[in-house]
Design a protein around this nucleic acid. Structure first.
Lengths: 109, 109
DNA sequence: TAATTGTATCAATGAATGTTGATAGATTAA
DNA sequence: TTAATCTATCAACATTCATTGATACAATTA
């Protein structure tokens, strides 16, 4: 049987399906999807995020790190209040991965 | 602070964000995403699926059950070979959930 | 009938990871 | 300086869940 492009798993480099899977895994955690959606509205500091989500500060930091390491959000130091770290969503990256996913779900192969 | 629509979690009924999260969780398993993509090409019996994916038969059955319970695929008995169960993707359902997800990722709130 | 094929279910296991508490570091205010 | 605020890190715990082996059930074939 001819091998479907959906089922190839031999190549060393990450193929699109693996990238899509990682993206899905990152966002399948409720708090992370909330964070991403929350940041799409506007940039926020950590304390705004964990209070809005009703979770602990350290837990928010953890999820933010996961999102940032994957490249879906960025962070910077607040210019006025240097203690605060401002997080922002990387809309281009999000769109890139969302499009990649849609290729597997909607778009014709 | 006014509560963001991203962070509401009080209502009993499942809101869109919860539905999107479930959808993401279902697909964040590599074999399940492969199955869904594989079934988009054409309807297949279980034995075609587990052989193409290189996984055990019972594991394929398990993942198919998860996908079916969530409503992303359907199943029917093969008309010619009654032993076989043919699975098919529910393209409308997939599109519905993909659109729902895009509302959180891409579309303006 | 008995044997084979195709599929589903069950219990057990192991790995991954979300969550918590404690704590450290950096910045600002008193 | 001292205290308070904001964020990140670490270890430990708890839970979820993918995977495996065994087995049961249904349909077909010999």
């Amino acid at each position: 049987m001819k091998k479907s492009p959906c089922c190839q798993n031999g190549s060393k480099e990450k193929n699109d399906l693996e990238k899509a899977t990682e993206f899905l895994k990152i966002l399948s955690e409720p708090n992370r999807l909330k964070v991403l959606c929350f940041l799409r509205e506007k940039d926020r500091c950590v304390c705004d995020i964990w209070k809005a989500l009703g979770i602990q500060q350290n837990l928010a930091s953890h999820h933010l790190k996961v999102l940032k390491d994957f490249g879906l959000i960025d962070s910077r130091q607040d210019k006025d209040e240097g203690r605060k770290i401002i997080y922002s969503s990387d809309k281009a990256a999000i769109k890139k991965y969302a499009t990649l996913l849609n290729n597997f779900l909607i778009t014709n192969l």
